[in-house]
Structure formats: structure tokens, C-alpha cells
């Protein structure tokens, strides 16, 4: 397919007094695993909000699978940053995952066999089997992240958007999540992930978006992940990381 999953044109986003994302244009191909990378306050989460549709643009447009507005929003599945929900909420892991089916069942629709099957498969994919009846606050950070990923899987969709899924997560969860994301990509889905850790960027993603209020670069990971681009994204102070990676690249 030549169509792009996400097509952003001249997008400018701002909070009350500050411009968070300035005139960004980019295209993300269908079936790619995309990392959005940049320093704190670079507007990564803001950009995600615009893609998800929870923030209005000052200027510019976001098109999903070729259509603007909310036309194709139903094809998008969003996994918010962990810690934005209330861990004291009286809800079990299984109930959170069941919420993933609420869009297709609607407000009053019954849970059919297919819904139950989707929930079951999602739970199996993230391997939290015996914890399903725990209250979510009683789970570890990694387990919580798996639950929210499972909710997204149960929801299904063509485009998955995840905000910092690896923040505060143990190593085994991180690799489990990466496996799930790769499976999604191999099924032809598009996955967008906001990511922090530069050392794993090249290993995880095949397409990168480097952002620091303005778009620094967007393209295949091996073309975009260059010391110059990183220096421009992060300013001088991550030169060390960049050089370390340069060494990696050389070897």
C-alpha cells in the first residue's frame, strides 16, 4: 500500500501561552512501527493528543488513512500514559480489558462470544493470566501497563498510539510489550510509540520522528537516527549518548 496511516500538514498546537508544537508536517507509512523521540517538553505528548483528537489544532491538519477530522478516528486505538488513571479506582484488570470492547458493543449492547474471545486473546497476548481478578492498584507498574495494552488489543483497530509505554516498567515487561508491538506491525497495523530511551530506539522502531517543538526529522530509522539529527533534537548536552551510538553504528 502506498497510502499513509498518518498524514500531518503544517500542524501548530499551543497551550494558553506557549506554542508546544510548531508547524510540523510528516507522513507515517502503513504497517510501520514508529518511535516519536525528543527531549522533555518537546511536544511529543501534545502531538499525540492531536493525532488522537483530544486537542484542537491552532493551524494545520491531521489526516488518518487519508481522511481528516473524525472520519477515520474509529480505526485508531489509544493507550494513554500510565499514571493518568486513578489506581485506587475499584476496578479489576479483567474489567479494564473488557472496556476495550465498549466501542463495538455500545452503551447497552450485550457481550457476545466474539467479544469475550477478543478479551481472552488480549489477556493471553500480554501474559497476565492469573492476575485478572486483582484490583488494578494491586498490580505492579509493569503489570498495569500490560493491562492497558491488553485493553487496546481487545479494542482492535488499524492504528495504535501509545504514550510512553515503557515508563516505569520492568525489563521483562518492556520486552513483552515490544514483542506484542512487533506482532501488531507484522499483522499490517501501524503503531506509534512515544519513547524516551535513546539506547533502544534503533532496536525497537523502523520509523522515527525526531521532535523538539519543530520537526527535526521523520523517516526510516536507519536514515534518520544520525548524530547530527540527535544533536539538533537534544541540543549539545546529549552529545555523549549520540557519540556512544555513533560508536554502535560503526561496530
Amino acid at each position: 500500500m502506498t497510502e499513509s496511516a498518518v498524514d500531518i500538514e503544517g500542524l501548530t498546537l499551543s497551550y494558553d501561552s506557549e506554542v508546544a508544537v510548531d508547524d510540523v508536517s510528516l507522513e507515517l507509512p502503513v504497517g510501520s512501527l514508529v518511535g516519536v523521540v525528543g527531549p522533555n517538553g518537546a511536544g511529543k505528548s501534545t502531538l499525540i493528543k492531536a493525532i488522537v483528537g483530544s486537542m484542537k489544532a491552532d493551524r494545520g491538519e491531521v489526516r488518518l488513512f487519508g481522511k481528516g477530522g473524525d472520519a477515520n478516528r474509529h480505526m485508531l486505538t489509544y493507550v494513554p500514559q500510565r499514571g493518568q488513571v486513578d489506581w485506587d479506582f475499584p476496578i479489576t484488570a479483567a474489567e479494564v480489558v473488557r472496556q476495550g470492547r465498549f466501542r463495538s458493543t455500545g452503551m447497552l449492547g450485550r457481550f457476545r462470544g466474539s467479544d469475550r474471545k477478543a478479551v481472552q486473546e488480549a489477556l493471553e497476548a500480554v501474559a497476565i493470566g492469573d492476575l485478572v481478578d486483582r484490583q488494578i492498584g494491586a498490580l505492579s507498574g509493569g503489570q498495569q501497563q500490560r493491562v492497558f495494552l491488553a485493553r487496546a488489543l481487545a479494542q482492535g483497530g488499524e492504528l495504535f498510539v501509545m504514550d510512553e509505554p515503557f515508563a516505569g516498567v520492568d525489563a521483562s515487561t518492556e520486552s513483552a510489550i515490544v514483542d506484542v508491538l512487533r506482532d501488531l506491525r507484522d499483522d499490517g497495523k501501524t503503531v506509534i510509540v512515544v519513547h524516551h530511551d535513546l539506547t533502544t530506539v534503533r532496536e525497537y522502531f523502523d520509523h522515527l520522528v525526531l521532535l523538539n517543538r519543530k520537526l527535526i526529522a521523520s523517516g526510516p530509522a536507519d536514515q534518520v537516527f544520525t548524530p547530527e539529527n540527535l544533536r539538533e533534537t537534544y541540543g549539545g548536552y546529549v552529545a555523549i549518548v549520540a557519540e556512544a551510538d555513533e560508536a554502535n553504528l560503526a561496530s
Partner: peptide, 12 residues
């Protein structure tokens, strides 16, 4: 109540 952003995303 649990996750307003998710709710908005699925059309609530």
C-alpha cells in the same frame, strides 16, 4: 469516571 481520555477516544 475511570479513564476519561479513553472514554473520549472510544466515542463516549
Amino acid at each position: 469516571s475511570f479513564d476519561p481520555r479513553f472514554a473520549a477516544a472510544i466515542g463516549v
